[in-house]
Design a protein around this nucleic acid. Structure first.
Lengths: 215, 215
DNA sequence: ACGTTGAGATTGCCG
DNA sequence: CGGCAATGTCAACGT
């Protein structure tokens, strides 16, 4: 990893074009070839180029060319630091609390969605894409469940498409399950006869393994 | 901007939780208080904390606490570098080629969408949100145009909502205009009687100002 | 390889 | 301040 602090102006040309006026910035060249430009604010890079890319270095700046012909032109007025470190391999990030995990927890305890509900299948395939959860209600209806962390309008439409596609498989209801359901989303869902259930991830995760933790 | 190269393991707890095993990484503390952790691959940060946040520094590591109670725990085994630079203010990024610019160019030359079409209005307001472009066709139909850089299924749904909402304003057709229209999107659009037009940004931009450039 | 979906999404806009 | 949509989205996963 090479760290360069320099006064520079930058032009990117690819799917879009972007320009950065002259200012002092941090330029990082990573071991995998990635070039990243950071300002002193925010966690996102101002500009970058992903490998594979070629770096042509001149006294007055760099031209970085990407695989699809994108270019990152860095005009350098003055270099204030240019240092390198060896970092080694990154073991990688482990995440929990994702939508995939929420779906798994709901599959293990479908009664949280509706009393008496039993799991038929997770990721039930349709030709419009997989239905997150397919349940059987206490009254023997098919429950088509869409799981989101945050449910917005598009989730209602996605679920509506599934319901339309599965129409004819007997008595059926759609249910939107999310940690957060936005107000307008709730309105549209209810207008279409789709149920709304808000769930708490911590609570689900806590209830998921009571047999293991309580003894 | 403070740059720290250190062997560290990291735990984040917020909306989700994430863990990074011990490895050598770059930790950046920016002037605005942002803390960012980078590996030697990729342009995105492994972990970060946005300001306002509080950094508690101990010999064995840092605990960074965010405004909503999220924590970033950085356990430090060894520090290999710890240097600081003053970068100053970032003038900011200027982009061209965005969807907004595409929409503007199409408003200036609606005949690219369909021969004989004239502009009625840009950003025509409805209570479901603004219609990108409203045109009048050569045959005096109203053309409801949705502009996207990349058109996916949701764009068809969005346009369908507008068409449903505007129903009754006379003869009407929906048209999806994008630099890229995905295959399934095209299928759904045509099934609903919505037209599909792919346009090239460079070509549009080139045709937009012939009077200025050709003189 | 291609297509689809999720993201600590973030960020910016407009009401 | 909340809702909504764009992003050089990227990255992961399934067909």
């Amino acid at each position: 990893m090479r760290l360069v602090v320099a006064d520079c102006s930058i032009d990117y040309a690819g799917r879009l074009t972007a320009h950065l006026p002259m200012a002092r910035r941090l330029i990082i060249v990573k071991a995998d070839g990635t070039v990243v430009v950071h300002a002193d604010q925010g966690h996102k890079a101002l500009n970058w180029m992903s490998p594979p890319c070629a770096i042509a270095e001149r006294p007055d700046g760099w031209t970085v060319t990407g695989a699809k012909g994108e270019t990152l032109d860095i005009a350098i007025a003055e270099i204030h630091a240019d240092i390198a470190y060896h970092l080694g391999r990154e073991p990688g990030l482990l995440k929990t609390g994702s939508e995939a995990e929420l779906q798994m927890l709901l599959a293990q305890q479908p009664e949280v969605i509706e009393a008496g509900a039993r799991l038929i299948q997770r990721e039930y395939p349709t030709d419009l894409g997989p239905v997150d959860l397919l349940l059987r209600s206490a009254a023997d209806e098919t429950l088509v469940v869409e799981v989101k962390r945050v449910a917005e309008l598009a989730a209602v439409e996605q679920l509506s498409r599934y319901l339309e596609r599965l129409d004819g498989l007997g008595s059926m209801r759609g249910i939107l399950v999310a940690q957060t359901i936005k107000p307008q989303t709730r309105v549209l869902a209810e207008a279409r006869g789709i149920g709304c259930v808000e769930v708490d991830f911590e609570m689900l995760a806590g209830r998921a393994v009571p047999d293991l933790t309580l003894f």
